[in-house]
Design a binder for these strands. Structure first.
Lengths: 349, 349
DNA sequence: GTAATAGTGTCTTTCAGACAGTATGAC
DNA sequence: GTCATACTGTCTGAAAGACACTATTAC
């Protein structure tokens, strides 16, 4: 299920590489965005942190250059084979090609590039394999979930750790640059929080040695001895959050950032909802993705004026209060508006 | 300068591919966005259309998996080697991996994936090689330039051709889908024009057999005989626009669409401008990228309120009228606003 | 009745679009 | 003076944010 295990030809240097396809498969259930993870297998197994922090892995499949006519067809093929999931919405994210992303490459094996994809599936459709599980994605990025207010770990763990990172800069100019970057990416010292900078935040934490993967990678490369002065000391000084194998958490960060941007100008939320839904369901899904609570009435008005949905006349009464009307996505909006998204209104309820 | 020419091992099937790196290098000079093209070489040379429509090619370099630590470093390395250009802003666009994108793959050679990049360089910095030239990118996409109003070729050539394509659909449902798609992507029959759908438009024209590349590819695959009922008849029925080698025009379309989207929420325009500039210069560059004329006063107000620029106090008097003040990018905006872009105001002046 | 959610009305501020107007240079 | 561009002022309508209010269910 994970990385190819044939390791015959090691590094016959004729400019060739292998291609891996990684899928970030997202669904929203119980107001929680989740991604499909698999158990890391083979030599990647042992990479988990010590204190119960077990690594997850993204579903992965190699591209078969002979059979797969397009990358996307290759992806949907092995996802279907492995998980019985039929992917609907699929979008290419990014191609990750750093040499150091894969331990084998460092030890002279063939280099593996991986093309990351984002796929959205409907709530309810769940794969039936036991090695797989749907994990709430904020387990991997606790600092990204602002639905219950500013996450305490930002002030408690991230800001002080970044302060130390800033202070550790070589010269004043460096420190100044670090300060600015930390402030902008994490919204510190009066800078605004930008929900879409998910990748920038993860990469900053990685560079500052504050996520497990950074420590793992520096230990691997310098074989034993602590690297940047932060390695090798268990989990001390790490920011909370479940880690992943290889650079998979980076891929997920890319996916989250992209998705947060996209809901604002393309009607992708509806890929995650059943065909009919109530306004509150819709709002909860958007909130889950955006990671913030939205103003109810304004959200309603925005969606309404945007012409994104239309009522069905049907009511549901399991709301816990007054019955709600069921709505469906208004297909015609595509030919009326250039950018039909949910355009997030103000925060909080 | 173009595709790798070693063709020794043809298709030894062990799941490996070669990686090519393509760069869409953009500059804006004389109010015209331009991209750096090279003369197609080797077996790609003969692909030009007959009627003086000569194909261009993007600068291309192979990834050296041994030497290039990251894809981006590989890209900047060979761009520097080939053109003496030092790339500043570089952004990965997309990875193109269709098997049929490369003639050699179809005839059993090794499959080549290409990773497309967008690079922005400053006006004035121009490469000194003679095989290269800066071509206005609307030569490749004449239907994308609305600065002098709706391009006549949309009504004259594109709409009727798409009508024929719609009519040619197999069943009524197909025709309905085609109609809707054509209307939305090209803003026909009352649908709005969306400047960012550059790729969708090119791909539609390709599928409908209305660009040179479509005809070329179908002729190649069916070796002589006209394919979809439109092949092999010179340039009759083609939509105007300079073609490119392989799928390079698709890559450029991706770049243009991405850039048009990005200027609205990231201050990338300034990568294309000198350090100081007048308001009108800034507006002209934005208009060149967006492909529309903007309302002058409102543009000014938007940029001003956005805090994107600050005055320098200096004046320039070669404006043809009253001297204009020079402005510079306000760096501090990055920590003040989450999405500092130029947020296009209404069309026309 | 209370609690909980669904849905409407409206006030205010901000912002986008469009109009006009004045300022300062070249000729 | 004319012409061309630079820059400012202000009106208007639309949209965003925030508040209050009514409606309909379960208990």
């Amino acid at each position: 299920m994970a990385l190819k295990s044939e390791s015959g030809s090691n590094g016959e240097s004729n400019g060739t590489v292998s291609i891996g396809l990684n899928a970030v498969i997202v669904a929203v259930t119980d107001e929680e965005p989740r991604l499909l993870t698999v158990r890391p297998s083979g030599r990647l197994r042992g990479q988990a942190g010590k204190g119960g922090r077990e690594s997850g892995a993204l579903p992965f499949g190699p591209l078969d250059p002979e059979k797969d006519r397009t990358l996307e067809l290759g992806l949907t093929r092995w996802v279907r084979e492995q998980t019985n999931l039929e992917l609907g919405y699929v979008e290419q994210l990014y191609t990750f090609g750093d040499r150091d992303r894969e331990p084998r490459s460092r030890s002279g094996g063939r280099r593996v590039l991986s093309v990351g994809y984002l796929a959205l599936v409907r709530e309810g459709q769940v794969a039936g394999r036991e090695e797989t599980s749907w994990r709430p994605w904020y387990e991997f990025f606790p600092w990204e979930d602002w639905r219950r207010g500013r996450p305490p770990l930002i002030d408690a763990a991230i800001e002080p750790a970044l302060d130390r990172w800033v202070e550790g800069g070589k010269d004043p100019l460096r420190r100044q640059e670090h300060r600015e970057r930390a402030d902008i990416t994490f919204g510190l010292r009066g800078a605004p929080w930008d929900g879409e900078r998910v990748l920038e935040r993860y990469e900053l934490l990685y560079e500052a040695g504050l996520v497990f993967e950074a420590r793992r990678d520096s230990e691997l490369s310098s074989a034993g001895e602590p690297a940047t002065g932060m390695g090798g000391r268990g989990e001390a000084g790490l920011v909370p959050g479940r880690s992943m194998v290889l650079d998979h958490r980076r891929i997920v960060a890319t996916a989250l950032g992209r998705l947060r941007g996209k809901i604002r100008y393309r009607p992708v939320v509806f890929e995650l909802l059943p065909p009919t839904f109530t306004y509150l369901q819709l709002q909860r899904v958007v909130e889950a993705l955006a990671g913030v609570r939205l103003h109810k009435q304004n959200f309603r008005r925005l969606v309404e004026k945007g012409g994104l949905v239309e009522g069905t006349g049907q009511l549901v009464s399991d709301t816990g209060g007054r019955p709600a009307e069921l709505f469906r996505f208004r297909h015609e909006v595509l030919r009326e508006r250039p950018t039909p998204g949910v355009g997030l209104p103000g925060v909080h309820s």
